[in-house]
Structure formats: structure tokens, C-alpha cells
Write a protein that binds this DNA or RNA. Structure first.
Lengths: 205, 205, 205, 205
DNA sequence: TATGAATGAGAATTCATTCAT
DNA sequence: TATGAATGAATTCTCATTCAT
């Protein structure tokens, strides 16, 4: 085992490897021993890098969200028209469909963990949660290039729905088709209601 | 404590009371003792009605889904126009927003439980999962009164997204407004693309 | 289920049916529920006839030993010569080989139960144990027709060994052959040491 | 508590200390807590060394049998004449009378554990059982110095009977006297039936 | 820094026993 | 007399965490 000089660097590497494990089993069902064995280290080492299981998970989610935002920013570049922009967003989620489904499971887990009764949510955890929410929204707005709250909310909600869709085994949502449908719907909507639309949005269509 | 006459009836009563507990803590984090104490019975009694924790949860989800379908069928009656019908659906979810959010958390938990590696999913559990998927879709089609797959998929996905929306603390999705927006979007879309629409849908607009 | 009028009669019938169950699982490993279900009665009924598990077992062993002695007395009749007599005894154990093996397992269990530390052996249980020991010895002496302690002890010990022999899967002791061997050995011994033999034994050879 | 260096070594040490506990209470009646406290370790430590109670017991019996064979081989040395050899064997069992009685109780327990219905006997357990049987027989043949099956079977069965004898409280078998009796019997038998005896046996008398 | 042995509180589950019907 | 629902202490086993090396 190569000695990692940079403590913090190694900590993050460990966290990054936890993704599939947490996604598949869920926080509460994974034991520290399983994590350690998955990472090919001893439990002692785990406790050397993380004070306890809860903080490990919190740091994991934190790290995860930071990476995600960064990744999304670099991979998605704004398109010219509204259609392009929506298409880019849907493409991105389609390409990383598996990843985002797992990420959703993790988020739900994190949410439950944070809200389980009788336990005071530690400030760091709360902040993690809020930071994620904020930055995802900001990113979407930036990508779409307009700030029409209703419409942004609509798209975000729909994307949340998409990320959940792989929970259903018998159904299979086609991200591409859904994207095209939504593009058509929004275009038709914008055409029909030109006055209820913000200027920045109108300029895109 | 009165002696219970109908074993199966009492079993279901117990299951029905578990909803909030499972929603708030999650399957893995709830202990059998907590469940027992929440239900005001002894752990022994719990094991008198359920062979183990896993089956208790499976039966709980099963019972839950059956009740949900039934409830939805009785509460939602089809409206005249498409707008009415969509409005009815969104109203229903808005009214039971809290309930459905919790239900979503439970479903995610169930999904993870069913897919945790190394464990063969018992047939009963699989069936429960599939039954839920099927009936929700059927119900929606029935309510909307048309079977345009893309559009049904769109609405289901969006509703899934809505049910997730309460996970975000800082945002607050307004179901009503989103419903009205979607109605307008669909109407605009149907008007603009009359030829790509199934007859049963067209007759509704 | 026919109502058994005679409480005590029914109690004994229940006990008699327990033989295989106790032999196979052992006292400590059998649960009251298993006993009840084996007997096709409810646990409640079990507790109607026996104050607790321990007493059920004690009564079972008691009943067992009484039946055994009775059975042995009726089935074995003294032969003419010593050879005949030994042959009769070995025949009897051979015929009921399976039964006596199980009975031995039960006796060992009973012994351990009685001697487990920290528990005062109840007088009834002690008496049961002693009664068995006494009567088996008396029976053997009666059957053999002589009271040469060393030789009786030798035969009893050997029979104990025979009863244990089915514990070994790979070996297979042939009771008949062993009987004939012992007959020859005793005869040779008696011939060679005529003076060290009690008169009643000598008269049999 | 010092950190244990040799995992396997310590495991065996733990097993060796279990003898009296298992002998006195029996497998099913001993709890893991009792074992742990008897060994002065925590239950957690117990489960660190053994996967479960059943395997602990299987490993215990395995270890026990290995030690026994080894011990017997070093303590018993073959004598000159047949009488000597038999005497040595009886002496050995007399000296360790207590030990072998307990060992017998354990073997019965093990047998019952292995044959309790509905449970597939794990291969390791089966092997343990067979190994014991084999090696005891081999040892005896080696010690006696002849391989006359009937006679070996006779002696083994008798020894089994001796080991059971301490189960009887009121009786008291004298190993020495029984040994002398058997020596005389065998000698008389060999003298009288010189032709039915294997050469290797004859050469010993 | 890394290990894994050790801990003991707590989890799931079992079981003798009681008791209302 | 017979039932089986109900109990809760006890059992097997797990797991986050600590700590000597």
C-alpha cells in the first residue's frame, strides 16, 4: 500500500470510492467494517480519517455534491436557443443516468438521516444539505439562461422525476424523447403566451 | 389486553400504523423494539404476526400500496376536459402532499432493501414491487382518459418529481401553480401539433 | 379430538409420544411449542397437563423407565443354561437396538439436566434416576439367575457399551456375534476358574 | 488486555478451556454469554474467533479429539504380553475416568447436534465425527497389537460402557477389577479356542 | 499512519409461561 | 378442558468504536 502523504487528499479518495456502496445498501445498512473492507483498509484506518460513521457519511455527501457541481459545470456548456439548452441538460442526465439514480438514492438517505427524530442535526450536515440545493438550482438557471421561477421549478421537478424513474423496473422512461416533448411543449407555450414570459426567456426562442 | 379474534385483520391494523415510523426513520434504522413500542405491543407479539423484520416491511409496503390504489380510485373521479382531469390529479397529490412524500421515502427504502447485493429477492417482495408499478400507471391512464404513452410517461415522471420536492428545504414547489402551468403547456402543445395526438386525447381538449 | 375422560391416562399418552422427539433433539433443544405441535395440541394444553418443561421431562423419563422395566420383564423369560440366558438378553437388546440407543441418549440428557450446576435437583427427579438404576440391575440379576457382582457388572457395562455403539456411524457392532463371543469367554472363564465362582452361577454351566 | 499475536493459537486456547463447561451443562444449555464469561472475554471476542455457536462447538469437538488422540499416544506404551496391554489400556481410562466420562457426555451432545432433524450437517462437522471414530479404533488396534475384529469390537464396546458407567450414581464400576476379569476371560478363551485366533494375537499370549 | 483484537451496548429473534376466552 | 394470543426476559449475534501494538 503506497503511503499517501497528503492526509486530506487520501481522505477524499476514500470518500469517492464509497459511492456505489452507499447507493446500493444505504447508509444505515452499511457497516463500518463493510466500508473498510470495500476500501481495502482496516476499520482502524477508517477511524483515523473520520471521527465516526455519521461524519463519514456527511463528508461523503459533501464531497459528492462538490464534485457533482464541478463536473456539471465543466461538462455542460450553454447552447444558443432554448431548445439547445434544454437538450443539453437532458443529454447530460441521460448520459449519467445510472450515476444520478444512485445519487438520488443517496440523497434520500441523507435526508432521512438528517431528519430522524430526536437527533439534533449537526450544523455541518445542515449546511451540506442546503449547499447542494442552492448550487443545483443556480447551475440550472445559469445553463438555461433565464430565471422564470415557475418554469425553472417545472424543469427541476421534472428532472427529479427522471432521476427517480429507474426505481421502476417494468417501466422505462426515454430521457431523449421526454426532452424533445418538453421542448415542444415549452415552445408551444411560449408562442401562445408571449406576454407572460420574462424577456430573457423570450429572447431565447 | 383483549384477545384478538381475527388474526389477519389485526395484522393489517398493525401494518397500517407503521407508516409514519418507517417514513421518518427508514427501514434499516428502525428497530423491532421501536416498532413494537410504537404499536404498543411486545416484541413477542410482533413476531407472532410477522416472521421477521424483512417480511414485516414487505407486508407493510404491500398493504400500503393496496390501500393507496383503493384510496386514489375512490377519491379521484374523472373530470370532463383534459384540463379538469389534470387538475384533479394535481389537486389530489397536493392535498396528500405530506403523505406522498413519506410514501416516496418508503418506496426508495423498499427499493434499496430489495436490491441490496448478495440477497436473493424473495418472490413476494418482487411481486409487491411490480404490483405497485402496474397499478399506479393503470390508475393514471384511467383518470386521464387517454393512453398516449409519451404524455402519460411525462405526467408520471413529473408527479414523481413533485413527490420528491419536499426533500428540499429551501425550495417550495407549488403544486397548484405547476398544475396550471402544465395544463397550459399541454393545451398549447395539443393545439400546435394536432396531428401527432391520439384521437381519444384530442376529443378531450 | 376425542375428549379424554381420564386426565392421568391422557397425560401418559402424551408422554409416550414424546420419545422420538426428545431422543432426536435433546431436552434443551426442544421447545415447548415443538412438543405441543408434535403432539398436535396447543401449548396451553401442554401446560394444562404439566406444570413446566422440566417436570414434563421428568415425568417423561419416569414413565419411560416404568414402561421399559415392565416390557423387559414380560418379553424376557429366563433360559435354562447360562448361555441361553445371556443369549436371551443380547437378543432382546438387538431386537430393540434402535429403541435402546435413543433411550440412552435420553438418559444422558436426563443425567446432564439433573447435574447442571447451580440447580438443586428436585427430589422427584433424583428418585426417578435412582429407581431406573436399581430396577435395571435387579432385572438383569433375575434374568441371569446369579449374583456374582463382578460378572453382573461386566455384563451391564458391556450392554451399556452396546447401547452407545450406534453413535458411531462408520463402525457397526454385531450384537449377536458379540453375544456369542461373550458366552464363549464366560464359559471358558468358568471352566478355568471353577473355584472363584459362586455356586448359583456354577450350577448354570 | 494484551493484543493477541497468533489468532489461531489463541482460538485453540479458548477451545481448550471450554471442556468442563460443555461437559457439565451440555451444548444447548450453555449460552454464548456463559461461555464468554467463563473464558473471561466478551461475547464480541467470542464472535471474533468463531462464526457462531454451532461452529464453536464443532471446532471444540475437533480440537478435543485431536488432543485426545495425541495424549493417548504419548501416555500409553505397548506392553509385552496381551495381559499387559489390556492392563495399560484399562489403567489409562481409570486414571482419566473423570475426563472420559465428561468426554462421553460431550460426544453424545455432539451426536445429537449433528443429527437433529431438518438441519443439513455441515461437512466440517461430519468430518469431525468420522475422524474421531477412525482414530480411536486405530489407536486401540495399535496398542493391543492385534487386529482380530471381534475382539477389538468387544474391547471398544466395553470401554464405551465403562465411560458411561459414572452416569449411575448408586453403582460404582471398578475399572481395575473389570480389567483383570477381562484379562482372565480372554486368556481362558484364547487357551480354549486356539484355532479361532489370529496368529498375531496368539503370539502375545 | 495502520492494524485488527477487544469491547459491550444493543439489535433481531426465541421461548417458557400466562391468561382471557 | 382447550386454545393460541400475548408477554418480556433471555438468547444469539452485530456493530460502532477504542486502543495496544
Amino acid at each position: 500500500m503506497p503511503k499517501i502523504v497528503d492526509h486530506d487528499q487520501y481522505r477524499k479518495e476514500l470518500l469517492n470510492q464509497c459511492f456505489d456502496l452507499f447507493a446500493e445498501k444505504g447508509y444505515a445498512s452499511v457497516t463500518m467494517r463493510q466500508i473498510a473492507s470495500w476500501l481495502d483498509v482496516s476499520t482502524g484506518t477508517l477511524y483515523h480519517y473520520f471521527p465516526n460513521k455519521e461524519m463519514l457519511f456527511a463528508q461523503f455527501v459533501d464531497e459528492l455534491s462538490q464534485r457533482d457541481i464541478l463536473q456539471a459545470k465543466t461538462e455542460m456548456t450553454a447552447g444558443q436557443t432554448l431548445s439547445d439548452r434544454i437538450r443539453i441538460v437532458f443529454d447530460y442526465f441521460e448520459r449519467n443516468r445510472d450515476y444520478f439514480f444512485k445519487q438520488t438514492l443517496i440523497c434520500v438517505d441523507f435526508h432521512q438521516q438528517m431528519h430522524r427524530e430526536g437527533i439534533e442535526i449537526s450544523d455541518p450536515m445542515k449546511q451540506v444539505g442546503e449547499r447542494i440545493e442552492q448550487s443545483v438550482e443556480e447551475l440550472l438557471i445559469e445553463l438555461l439562461g433565464f430565471d422564470e421561477p415557475e418554469l425553472v421549478s417545472f424543469l427541476m421537478t421534472f428532472i427529479d422525476g427522471l432521476m427517480m424513474s429507474d426505481m421502476y423496473v417494468t417501466r422505462r422512461v426515454d430521457f431523449q424523447k421526454q426532452g424533445e416533448l418538453i421542448i415542444k411543449m415549452i415552445n408551444a407555450y411560449v408562442e401562445k403566451h408571449p406576454n407572460s414570459i420574462a424577456p430573457d426567456l423570450k429572447s431565447l426562442t
